[in-house]
Amino acid sequence: MNCRRARKLLTGVSGAGSGADPELARHLASCAECERFAERWTEVRDGLKGRLTTLTPDAGFAARVTARLGPPADPFVWAARRLVPVTLALTLVLGGWCLLRTPAPSSLADELADGDLLTWVASDEEEQR
């Protein structure tokens, strides 16, 4: 085993993990540099595990947060949440009113197909002459 392979195993970068690899153990016993690296790596890993700033929020933290609160949620989403029922009701009322007042486009189409419309225009012209 060469140093490169040994260090990849030690750092878990090879994906294999170092766990009780006899070949690695033999390499570490015979290579002072890798042994030093292994010690340093263990210190770094332990340091990462223990690296924690322990800080307890004081009694005023929640108040400091609420003092900075803006309008709830994204303003547009919030407004939409509020406006959805109103918009829906208005649409239904207006839609119903329009349906009662105006013939539906489909019924108009039934009454005057393209051919009939041309006939109607032509006959009108004849009358005007």
Binding site: L55, F61, V65, L69, G70, P72, A73, D74
Partner: peptide
């Protein structure tokens, strides 16, 4: 403290 405040402010804005 600052990142903790930012977390709660974001939570408030994105709660929906």
């Amino acid at each position: 403290e600052e990142v903790a405040q930012e977390t709660f402010l974001t939570a408030w804005r994105k709660l929906h």
